[in-house]
């Protein structure tokens, strides 16, 4: 048993040091309390719904979210709009469909099964409209950035005047948290930019938090199910481990007495 504890600790230490060495570049991101962190972490529904509003009204004019469908908005563990609300949301978008019987493409109101409508036809069009920089697809953006939610949250609030000695080209902005500090996206948020229907005051900080929460859900839509199942699985494994441990003691006692 003693040697087992040693093995166990050794494994944990190695794994922790590994994960630390991965996060080689440590940046001090802005901190906030994320409701979805921790063993029982869940999304804040209000934040998700507000975050969706920020995404649609602000981000979606440049950033696509091509792996999400409107039906996701009403699914469990997400913003949990009612199905009726989600249908209304979907129908407010024009979706290109076709070809019809005459072989022509046509537009129709969106349905729940449709994917989020993209702002540009393709990457080239997106680049052409944004000075050569492709606004990245936001479906898995949180997972595609080293700092995750903290990075996105900080970036949205990290716009500042450039320090002395740094000159910026036309269409380039200074951001404290951007890799290399130069970003081609202008500060997207300003106080009161959107009007929340639930009465929450739309400060930049609030909007950053809401939209980041929304992006976290978009990247990891089964996070709540994962946390719940994980807790059950680990409790189960511990119970079984205890049972097996005592069974093992019992079985091995047969020969311990012989020896």
């Amino acid at each position: 048993m003693k040697i087992f504890c040693k093995i166990f600790t050794a494994i944990i230490i190695v794994l922790i040091s590994l994960s630390n060495s991965y996060a080689a570049e440590k940046v001090n991101y802005l901190k906030t309390n994320w409701s979805f962190k921790g063993l029982f972490g869940k999304f804040d529904r209000g934040a998700l719904q507000r975050g969706y509003q920020v995404y649609t009204e602000v981000c979606s004019s440049c950033h696509s979210m091509k792996y999400l469908s409107y039906r996701n908005l009403s699914e469990q563990g997400g913003p949990e709009f009612t199905v009726a609300q989600a249908k209304v949301i979907a129908a407010s978008f024009e979706v290109k469909d076709g070809p019809n019987a005459d072989g022509e493409m046509f537009t129709r109101p969106g349905k729940l099964s449709d994917k989020f409508v993209m702002p540009y036809e393709n990457i080239k069009a997106a680049q052409a409209a944004n000075g050569g920089a492709y606004p990245p697809d936001m479906s898995v953006l949180v997972k595609a950035r080293g700092g995750g939610v903290d990075y996105i949250y900080s970036l949205l609030q990290g716009y500042d005047d450039p320090p002395v000695g740094i000159t910026l080209d036309e269409g380039v902005y200074y951001n404290k948290y951007m890799y290399g500090n130069k970003i081609k996206m202008a500060s997207p948020l300003s106080d009161g930019l959107v009007e929340y229907s639930d009465g929450t005051i739309a400060t930049v900080e609030q909007m950053s938090k809401d939209v980041t929460t929304f992006l976290m859900w978009a990247a990891e839509p089964h996070l709540e199910a994962r946390h719940q199942m994980g807790f059950k699985a680990i409790v189960y494994l511990i119970i079984l481990t205890i049972l097996v441990y005592f069974s093992m003691k019992k079985i091995w006692s047969r020969i311990e007495t012989e020896v």
Binding site: Y236, I239, L240, V244, F246, S247, K250
Partner: peptide
């Protein structure tokens, strides 16, 4: 002992 083994088997089977 039988109970312990039965319980272990049963819990294992559930898993």
């Amino acid at each position: 002992r039988d109970f312990l083994f039965t319980a272990t088997y049963a819990v294992g089977a559930v898993g």
